[in-house]
Amino acid sequence: MPPLRALFAIHLAAFLLGLVGLFGALSEATPLLITFGRALFAFICLWLFSHFRGKPSTALSKRQHGFLLLCGLLLALHWALFFYAVSIGGVAIAGLGFAAFPAFALLLESLLLRRRPGPLQWLALLLVSVGMLLVAPDFSLTNSSNIGLFWAALSALLFAVLSLLMRFNLEQIEPYRTTLSMTLVTWLCLLPFAAPLLPTLKAMNWLWLAVLGLLCTAFAHSLIASSLKRISASSVSVILALEAVYAIAAAWIFLHEQPSLSMLAGGSLIISASVLISRAGGTQKRRNS
Rank of each mutant, 00 (worst) to 15 (best):
R5L: 14
A6S: 14
L7N: 12
I10L: 06
L12K: 01
A13P: 07
L19Y: 01
L19I: 05
G21C: 03
F23E: 09
G24D: 07
G24Y: 06
A25C: 01
L26Q: 10
T30R: 11
I34F: 01
A39V: 05
F43P: 02
H51M: 12
G54E: 02
G54R: 09
K55E: 15
K55A: 11
K55N: 03
T58I: 11
A59E: 12
A59L: 06
Q64F: 04
H65I: 03
H65A: 03
G66S: 00
L70K: 00
L73I: 09
L75Q: 01
H78Y: 09
A80Y: 01
L81D: 05
V86I: 15
S87R: 10
S87P: 03
I88D: 06
G90R: 08
G90T: 10
V91Q: 08
A99E: 13
P102V: 13
L107V: 15
L108M: 14
S110F: 05
L111D: 01
L113C: 10
L113D: 14
R115S: 15
P119L: 15
L127T: 09
V128I: 12
V130S: 10
A136W: 04
D138I: 06
S144F: 09
N146P: 01
I147M: 06
G148L: 05
L149R: 05
F150N: 05
A153T: 14
L154V: 14
L154E: 13
S155P: 03
L157A: 15
F159C: 11
L162T: 12
L162C: 04
L170D: 13
Q172L: 03
P175S: 10
R177S: 07
T178M: 01
S181C: 00
T183K: 00
T183P: 00
V185E: 00
T186K: 00
W187Y: 11
L190F: 12
L190Q: 10
P196R: 12
L198T: 10
P199A: 11
P199I: 08
M204C: 00
M204R: 11
W208R: 02
A210M: 14
L215W: 11
L223C: 07
I224W: 04
A225Y: 10
S227C: 06
R230G: 02
S232W: 01
S232K: 08
S235A: 09
S235P: 00
S237Y: 02
S237I: 10
V238C: 12
I239D: 05
L240N: 11
A241Q: 13
L242E: 14
E243Q: 14
V245W: 09
V245N: 11
Y246E: 07
A247H: 04
A251C: 01
I253A: 03
F254K: 02
F254L: 13
H256W: 06
E257C: 04
P259M: 02
P259I: 08
S260R: 13
L261V: 09
S262Q: 10
L264P: 04
G267I: 13
I270W: 07
I270Y: 01
L276A: 11
S278Q: 07
S278P: 02
G281N: 13
T283K: 10
R286D: 13
N288Q: 15
N288W: 05
S289W: 05
